[in-house]
Amino acid sequence: MTIRIEDSSIPSPASRRLLLEHARTVAEQADRHAVTLESLLAVLRSSRVDDKAARTMTIDIAATALVEIRMTTDQQRGTMLEPVVGAFARLRNDLRPLERFGDLEVQFVEPPATGRALPGEVAHAARAIVRSAVLAFVDSGAARRVRIQWDCDGLNLLIGIRDDGAGDLSHHDDSLRPIAERVSALDGEFAVSSTPGWGSLLEVRLPLDPPNEPEPLEDVVALSHREREVLRLVVSGARNSEIGSQLDISNNTVKFHVSNLLQKAGARSRAELGALTR
């Protein structure tokens, strides 16, 4: 039995999931729009094409981006699988205009064709992570070459992004915050290593399977019937005197049961006990 306390001022888990999903979708669309705009600027600024060709190319980029937005909107994110090679190909298409017309040379190291298919949420996050990193390198103006590599060990998607810039990036850079947040949201790992004058390496590990949900406290800790009653009231916010009154036991007996509950749960406070119960 899991004890849940309803509070209208606290969003439900389902509401929080929807809000988080909405925030991720907005962030991803912002990244995609930024890449599209950078691509358009790269074409328009390029000295390699004349005005007529530049106009044709920018129309093509904008039309492709519009189709992609409509397709993404229609998809049910997280409910479908993408072959790792196909997901990587979509990333290349996202960055192709920057590769062709920008000052940044982008090198791609293809993932193994036999790699495990990626859950939709992981594939979307992986592309967003790489786009964010490339945009950070473009904004810095120091990098001239970026190497992007994906690999799959069966349990995780492994992403490596290396540039030849100033080599001064660290976890504390604001430009890398979106990457860290996306990785954290998927229970992954993110590492940054830099060598002054030689560039930086971003390494990301994204699990392909969601983390196991923790079991409710009452399913993993043996509790007596009385302890369950006390626990229910502790989680509801009742004071010891109120618990004693409702259960018709003394204040000292309530303290005894609460102390046992804290010890069994490994909790340091009543608030932590309540969190473990939920």
Rank of each mutant, 00 (worst) to 15 (best):
L158G: 07
V258D: 04
V85Y: 08
G154W: 08
R55Q: 06
A117I: 02
E215P: 03
V220S: 15
A136M: 04
G115Q: 08
T25L: 12
A125P: 05
F256A: 13
P111S: 12
T36K: 06
V84F: 06
G141K: 13
S8F: 08
A133Q: 15
S9F: 03
L202H: 03
V67I: 11
H172V: 09
E28N: 13
M80I: 13
N252Y: 09
I159C: 08
I148D: 00
D7G: 09
A143N: 11
L158D: 11
A185P: 02
L40P: 09
A185N: 12
E189A: 13
R131T: 14
G120F: 01
L247C: 04
R144A: 08
F101V: 00
R4H: 12
Q263T: 11
D187E: 14
T195I: 12
A87Q: 04
L176R: 06
L104E: 01
R45D: 10
N156M: 06
V221T: 12
F256Y: 15
C152W: 03
R228E: 15
D51H: 04
P211R: 13
I159N: 10
E28S: 14
V235F: 10
Q75N: 13
E21A: 08
S236K: 07
A180V: 02
A89H: 03
A54D: 07
P196Y: 03
R270P: 01
V134I: 15
S140L: 01
F190S: 08
L206T: 08
Q246H: 09
G266Y: 05
A34N: 07
L135I: 08
V109A: 09
S245H: 09
Q76C: 04
A271F: 09
S15C: 05
L273S: 00
V49A: 07
V235K: 12
S9K: 03
N251M: 02
V43L: 04
L41P: 05
V221C: 11
E99Y: 07
I3T: 12
T277H: 12
L135W: 05
D103R: 02
L81P: 05
A63W: 04
I69G: 07
H33N: 11
L41G: 05
R90P: 00
V67K: 06
I161N: 00
H225R: 06
S140C: 02
A30H: 11
L95V: 02
R162M: 00
P97F: 02
G199S: 05
A191F: 14
F88E: 15
A126C: 01
F88S: 13
D60P: 00
G165E: 01
R147Q: 08
E218A: 13
G160N: 07
G86D: 15
A128F: 12
P11H: 02
L233M: 11
S140K: 12
A23C: 05
S47Y: 00
E215A: 15
R162D: 02
S46M: 09
I161L: 02
L20I: 01
L176S: 11
V204I: 15
S132Y: 03
R116F: 02
L233K: 14
A62S: 15
A133R: 14
L223V: 03
I179R: 14
Q29R: 12
L202F: 11
R32F: 15
D60T: 02
I61K: 03
C152Y: 03
